[in-house]
Design a protein around this nucleic acid. Structure first.
Lengths: 146, 146
DNA sequence: TTTCGTTGTAACCATTGACATTACAACTAA
DNA sequence: TTAGTTGTAATGTCAATGGTTACAACGAAA
């Protein structure tokens, strides 16, 4: 199991918007070139970010605007916008354990709390990072490049 | 993205072995009935657990034995045995970002450390739970049932 | 008003992984 | 030898991922 590349693509998009937004119009074609994928892939991800209320996209003319400060958008916000996990459960169970078996009928009660704490640990760490960290990190990397 | 049900099935298997191992011979058919799936699914998971050195399986006669104490097998050990993530990276990147783009050629350096810390947070929480917690938890649940 | 660049979205397609199922060889103990 | 079990190959179905083409809708500028 791996988290889909859409998540890191979304972070890539935000980094591009912040890095180039003042100089270029950042379109889905521009982003697709930087990420090396198809513009439609980008547009679908932009739609997800828009539906989550993180950005606005100018139809017709093009251009992406954040709806909040960089420091107010965490990795978790992006993750939540991108990953279509219904119910939000990280761990999947087999659908119908046998209720006639003492273990089968108690397996959810046994595991749910523990699995939730694992998921919480991951999500809480995601909340520690914001898009502001991407700006400062990228500035440092570009300064080193020269 | 969700972690496959094979992980929770593996925990279910361990719980059955501990709960019923003294009274019944715990075969792949027995386990399949408790989990409500196909015995071959069980055998494949048992093969993974065996390859990871967590259990031995008696061919021909049937029967599962742990190679370590319950308290010496963590959820992470099971997760690592079950999830075939090559390289062990939780987050997937798009394969070939554009090296001509300043963001494209630095996106890995920008994100790798942060994503690793998120993955570590999850895995460290997984290491806190062991099969001993499954034994004690299941005993409590069964005691409540009466 | 027309043109041009852009977004939104539908309609496909290929590939992969998850889960299931059947079948059968190999094995072990009774 | 027999009965029960494991190991594994071969298939099948389904969903998700990532890609691609096509085109309508839109907005700004000429």
């Amino acid at each position: 199991m791996q988290i889909s590349s859409r998540f890191t693509i979304a972070l890539h998009i935000f980094t591009c918007v912040d890095t180039f937004g003042d100089d270029h119009k950042v379109t889905s074609d521009f982003l697709a070139a930087s990420i090396n994928t198809n513009p439609v892939i980008i547009r679908k991800i932009l739609t997800q970010l828009k539906n989550a209320g993180l950005i606005t996209v100018a139809r017709g003319t093009g251009g992406i605007e954040l709806t909040r400060e960089l420091s107010e958008i965490s990795f978790y916000d992006v993750y939540e916008a991108i990953e279509p996990v219904e119910g939000g459960d990280l761990f999947r169970f087999h659908e119908a354990p046998n209720p006639a078996c003492p273990v089968g009928r108690n397996i959810h009660a046994l595991l749910d709390g523990k699995l939730n704490s694992i998921q919480d640990a991951m999500e809480n760490e995601m909340k520690k990072y914001t898009l502001m960290d991407l700006r400062t990190g990228m500035k440092e990397l570009l300064a080193e490049e020269v």
